[in-house]
Design a protein around this nucleic acid. Structure first.
Length: 581
RNA sequence: CGGGGCGUAGCGCAGCUUGGUAGCGCGCCUGCUUUGGGAGCAGGAUGUCGCAGGUUCAAAUCCUGCCGCCCCGACCA
C-alpha cells in the first residue's frame, strides 16, 4: 500500500473527549472515527487490525472444532419472549417495530437465535456435539458508552455456542474453548489472565472471563499470590471467619445515644470514639421492588452482585429515601436492624458480632451494644461483601493480590437455561428425550484491539505486536525529491510486496520528521529508513518500533533480514501461555 | 435516570461577564526556499457561532425550550 493513496487521517493533537490512551491513539492513528455515542466507523488502518484479530480467532475456533455461521442481527421478539429475556434483559435491548407493527430487537447476543436454529435441525445424540460460532456486530444500548470502542453500543464480537448430549461432553466443549481462548490471546500478543466470573444476564452456572491486564481496566481482579485462584472482584469469594464461642462475652445493655446529624461511618466513629469494625452498617436495598436490609461491618462494602445472586432477584438497587423511611421509620443515615420491618441478611464477617453500634431507626440516634438474637433477628449469614486486601485466598488461605483488567473474552457453562426454555431436545441412545447442554463463548474484537493498545504504547504512539499489526513494514524514504532515494524505495517496495510482506510505502512528499512521527504513531513494527548517507554505501536502516534499535543492512540482504524479523516476532503462537494441545 | 461540564473553521481553543455582526494555533490551497524526528517566508480559502423561539435598532454574547457530546454515579459480554 502506498501511504499517499491510503485513507489514513492521522491527528497530531489529542482529541479532547478521549479519556483513555487506546481511545486517543485509535483516533489519532486514523483507525476509528465516531459516528454517534458509542457507534464507530473503522477506517482502513483500524479495520486491518480487526481483521487480523478475527483471522486468529477463526483459525483457533476452527482448530478447536467449531464451525462458522452468520446469524441475523435483527431478531423477532417471539424468540426473546420464549427464553424469558424479553422481560428480563432490560433497556440494554434495543427494541423496535417494523411496518407491520411486529416487535423486533437488535441482537445483543445470539443464544435465542442459535438455539432456535439448532432445535429444528439437531434431533439425535448422533448429531452432537456441535459448536457453532460467528463474528458479528452486536448492539447493546449501554447506559453510558465510554472509552471509545472499549465500551461502545455497537461492537464486534465473536460468539460461539456449544451443544452437548451430556455434562461430560459439555465439560469437554468448555475446556476446548478455554484452551482456544488462551491460544487466541497469546497469539494477539496480550498479557492476560482467565478469572472466575459472575455470569450476569447471560445466565448459567459457571464462567471464566479472560482479562487483559491494564490499570485502565474497568474490572477489579483478585488473584492468589500462591495458588491458581483468580477471580473478578465481583465474584471473589470470602471465607467466613471462624465461629467464636461468645458465651464469655457479656451482652451489655442496649443503649440509645443521641447522635445529632451524625450519619456516615466516619462521623459515627469520630463522635462515639469507636472503630469502624465495631459498627454495623445497615444498607437498605430494593430487590425486585421489595425492601431487604443487608448488614455489613462498618469497614466493609456490600458486593451487590453477591446480594443479587443470594436473593435470586433480577433488579437490585439501593432503596430510595421514601422506602428507607417506610421500613426504618427514620431518614437515611440512621438505619439499623433493631425494630426494622422486613428481611435482614448479614455478611459472614458478622457471625461473631457482639455489642455493636448501629443506627437506631430514629432520626439523630444510634444504638450501642446491639446484639443479634436478643435485639433483632437475622434471616441468614452469607458471603455478601467485597473482597479486600485483608482477606485471604478462599482456596488456600494465603494472601490475595489485586489488579485491574479489561474483559476481552468470557466463557460460560450455560447448562440448560436456554435449551429448556426453548425446548432444544434430542433423543438419546435409549430413544429417550433429553435437553441439550449448552455453553456460550464470547470475544470482543474491537475491545481486544483497544486492550492491546492499552498494553502496547509509548509516548510516540502505538507499538503493535507483529501478529496483529496492520502492516509488518513501513518503508520511509527521507526525501521523495531525491530520485535515488525514491527509486530505492520503489525497488524495495516491489520486492517486499512480491515476497509476501505486508508493506506500507511512505511515498508522501513530506519531511522526514513528519514521516517518522506518523510511522511511530500508527505503530508499524519495522521501519526501513532510506537516507542519502547510508544509501551511498548501499545500505538502509532498519528500526524496530518496540526497542528503537537501529541496524544498517546492505540492500541485497534486506529482504531476508526482514523475513527473519517478521517470522521471529510471529512466533507468539508457540509461546508460553498458549494452549496445551 | 440523578449531578457537573461543553457545543464558535477539519482538529485544539479564545471571544460571551459588560450585546455592535468573529479570532488564534495546527491542518488545508498556491508559490519560493528547505529536506534524518511534526520546517521557514509570502499569499489564500474555509464558519447556518448545535437547533428553534424570544428580548433588542442590533444577539456567538441576554432569556426560554430542545438536541448532541463529555465526565461522575447508578447499570453492564
Amino acid at each position: 500500500m502506498r501511504y499517499s493513496e491510503m485513507f489514513l487521517p492521522t491527528e497530531r493533537e489529542v482529541p479532547s473527549d478521549a479519556e483513555v490512551i487506546s481511545h486517543q491513539l485509535m483516533l489519532r492513528a486514523g483507525m476509528i472515527r465516531k459516528l454517534s455515542a458509542g457507534v464507530y466507523c473503522y477506517l482502513p488502518l483500524g479495520y486491518r487490525v480487526i481483521r487480523k484479530v478475527e483471522q486468529i480467532i477463526r483459525e483457533e475456533m476452527n482448530r478447536a472444532g467449531a464451525q462458522e455461521v452468520f446469524l441475523p442481527m435483527v431478531q423477532p421478539a417471539e424468540l426473546w419472549q420464549e427464553s424469558g429475556r424479553w422481560e428480563h434483559y432490560g433497556k440494554e435491548l434495543l427494541r423496535f417495530r417494523d411496518r407491520h407493527d411486529r416487535e423486533y430487537c437488535l441482537g445483543p447476543t445470539h443464544e435465542e437465535v442459535i438455539t432456535d436454529l439448532v432445535r429444528h435441525e439437531l434431533k439425535t445424540y448422533r448429531q452432537l456435539p456441535k459448536n457453532l460460532y460467528q463474528i458479528q456486530t452486536k448492539f447493546r444500548d449501554e447506559i453510558r458508552p465510554r472509552f471509545g470502542v472499549m465500551r461502545s453500543r455497537e461492537f464486534g464480537m465473536k460468539d460461539a455456542y456449544s451443544f452437548d448430549a451430556d455434562e461430560e461432553g459439555a465439560e469437554i466443549s468448555y475446556s476446548k474453548m478455554f484452551e482456544a481462548y488462551k491460544r487466541i490471546f497469546s497469539r494477539c500478543g496480550l498479557k492476560f489472565r482467565p478469572v472466575e466470573a459472575d455470569s450476569g444476564t447471560i445466565g448459567g452456572s459457571f464462567s471464566h472471563e479472560f482479562m487483559v491486564m491494564a490499570d485502565s481496566g474497568e474490572d477489579g481482579l483478585v488473584f492468589c499470590s500462591s495458588c491458581s485462584y483468580a477471580a473478578n472482584l465481583e465474584k471473589a469469594e470470602v471465607h467466613p471467619p471462624e465461629k467464636e464461642n461468645l458465651d464469655a462475652v457479656e451482652e451489655l445493655p442496649l443503649t440509645e445515644v443521641h447522635t445529632p446529624d451524625i450519619r456516615t461511618i466516619e462521623e459515627v466513629c469520630a463522635f462515639l470514639g469507636v472503630s469502624p469494625r465495631e459498627i454495623v452498617k445497615t444498607m437498605i436495598f430494593s430487590a425486585d421492588g421489595k425492601p431487604v436490609a443487608v448488614l455489613v461491618r462498618g469497614d466493609e462494602e456490600v458486593n451487590e452482585i453477591k446480594v443479587r445472586n443470594y436473593l435470586g432477584c433480577d433488579e437490585l438497587e439501593l432503596a430510595m429515601d421514601d422506602i428507607i423511611e417506610a421500613i426504618t421509620g427514620a431518614p437515611r443515615g440512621f438505619a439499623g436492624a433493631v425494630g426494622l420491618r422486613g428481611r435482614i441478611i448479614a455478611d459472614n464477617t458478622l457471625i461473631n458480632m457482639r455489642n455493636v453500634v448501629m443506627g437506631a431507626n430514629k432520626e439523630d440516634y444510634h444504638l450501642r451494644n446491639a446484639n443479634p438474637g436478643r435485639d433483632f433477628q437475622i434471616e441468614a449469614f452469607a458471603d455478601l461483601k467485597i473482597a479486600r486486601e485483608t482477606d485471604d485466598c478462599p482456596r488456600c488461605g494465603k494472601a490475595l493480590s489485586f489488579a485491574r483488567g479489561i474483559e476481552v473474552g468470557h466463557v460460560f457453562k450455560l447448562g440448560t437455561k436456554y435449551s429448556k426454555a426453548m425446548e432444544a431436545v434430542f433423543l438419546d441412545r435409549n430413544g429417550k428425550e433429553q435437553t441439550m447442554i449448552m455453553g456460550c463463548y464470547g470475544i470482543g474484537t474491537g475491545r481486544t484491539v483497544a486492550a492491546c493498545i492499552e498494553q502496547n504504547n509509548d509516548e510516540n504512539g502505538i507499538v503493535w505486536p507483529m501478529p496483529i499489526a496492520p502492516f509488518h513494514v513501513i518503508i520511509t524514504p527521507v526525501n521523495m525529491n531525491d530520485s535515488a532515494l525514491a527509486e530505492a524505495a520503489e525497488r524495495l517496495y516491489g520486492s517486499f510486496a512480491a515476497g509476501g510482506f505486508e508493506v506500507l510505502l511512505d511515498d508522501r512528499d513530506e519531511r522526514a520528521g513528519v514521516k517518522f512521527k506518523d510511522a511511530d504513531l500508527i505503530g508499524i513494527p519495522i521501519r526501513v529508513t532510506i537516507g542519502p548517507k547510508k544509501l551511498a554505501e548501499g545500505k538502509v536502516e532498519i528500526r524496530l518500533r518496540d526497542t528503537g534499535e537501529v541496524t544498517a543492512v546492505p540492500l541485497e540482504e534486506v529482504e531476508n533480514y526482514i523475513r527473519k524479523l517478521i517470522s521471529g516476532k510471529m512466533n507468539l503462537e508457540n509461546s508460553g501461555s498458549a494452549g496445551s494441545e
